[in-house]
């Protein structure tokens, strides 16, 4: 790692002020950022830990809305979020990673193989920052790109609790990130299907599947529907065709789990 200063503010306002310094960077749980720093792939002048900010903690459910602090750890989400999201969080990384890694940190990083982004698209989320509210549908902007501005902090996230939802993940054998992951959420006004891990464009909503499932919420409704293999990721762990196939399989499994 390159040398940096370390700061640990206790309020959002202090954190925002600290992040105003040139090349200052926010530190959530560090489970991605610290390995990145070890590889010297980033060179912040200062790391601003968000772990001491009480107002960014907590996971609660009220009036059909799930509210999670940006600083909530994966373990806290796994313990206290609505069931489908809790199950997703319980399968991120490993127990030690879940005890440190945070929801806000993961979302801000927007790794194309991360799990949360699929949930955020499927669960009608709102990403709340120190400055504004961003609809989940507008937040993710390609690989490792988000709508966040420099120095902007995810303070909390709201999701609308669905009637039913399920996340199916197929793990890359080495990293155990998603080789493909499909989150299906059923609402009164329709079904949302979000796909992570698979596309070269990052997480996306699979509109054909949404339309089919909104009309007929059954695994068979997905018969004959597929994502375009051409836009899928190809790497050591799977071809474009394999990923496209996995997306279809996982979507059916998610629906079957709810049927």
């Amino acid at each position: 790692m390159y040398e940096f200063e370390f700061e640990k503010p206790s309020t959002i306002a202090e954190a925002v002020a600290a992040l105003a310094d040139e090349d200052a960077q926010a530190l959530g749980g560090g489970q991605t950022l610290i390995p990145t720093l070890k590889q010297r792939l980033a060179m912040p002048s200062k790391l601003v830990s968000l772990a001491g900010i009480a107002e960014m903690k907590g996971v609660s459910i009220a009036d059909g809305v799930l509210t999670m602090g940006g600083g909530a750890t994966h373990a806290e989400v796994a313990a206290d979020a609505c069931a489908p999201l809790a199950a997703l969080a319980a399968n991120i990384g490993d127990p030690a990673v879940r005890n440190r890694g945070t929801l806000g940190g993961s979302l801000a990083n927007n790794d194309p193989a991360a799990d949360y982004p699929a949930a955020m698209l499927a669960l009608k989320s709102t990403i709340v920052t120190n400055a504004r509210e961003i609809a989940g549908d507008d937040f993710f902007q390609g690989l490792f790109e988000t709508a966040l501005e420099e120095g902007e902090i995810i303070t909390s996230v709201r999701c609308e609790i669905p009637e039913a939802a399920n996340y199916q993940k197929f793990a890359q054998p080495a990293s155990r990130f998603a080789l493909a992951g499909v989150f299906v959420a059923k609402y009164a006004d329709g079904v949302r299907v979000a796909v992570t891990g698979a596309s070269e464009e990052g997480v996306f909503r699979w509109s054909e599947a949404e339309a089919a499932l909104s009309a007929n919420f059954a695994p068979d409704a997905l018969a004959g529907i597929s994502v375009d293999a051409g836009s899928m990721i190809a790497d050591l762990h799977g071809s474009k065709e394999y990923r496209a196939h996995l997306v279809a399989v996982l979507a059916k499994r998610a629906v079957a789990a709810l049927a």
Binding site: L179, H237, H245
Partner: peptide, 11 residues
């Protein structure tokens, strides 16, 4: 025999 290879062989 990764999942991708087995699937490719089967298909």
């Amino acid at each position: 025999l990764s999942p991708a290879r087995v699937w490719a062989a089967m298909n």
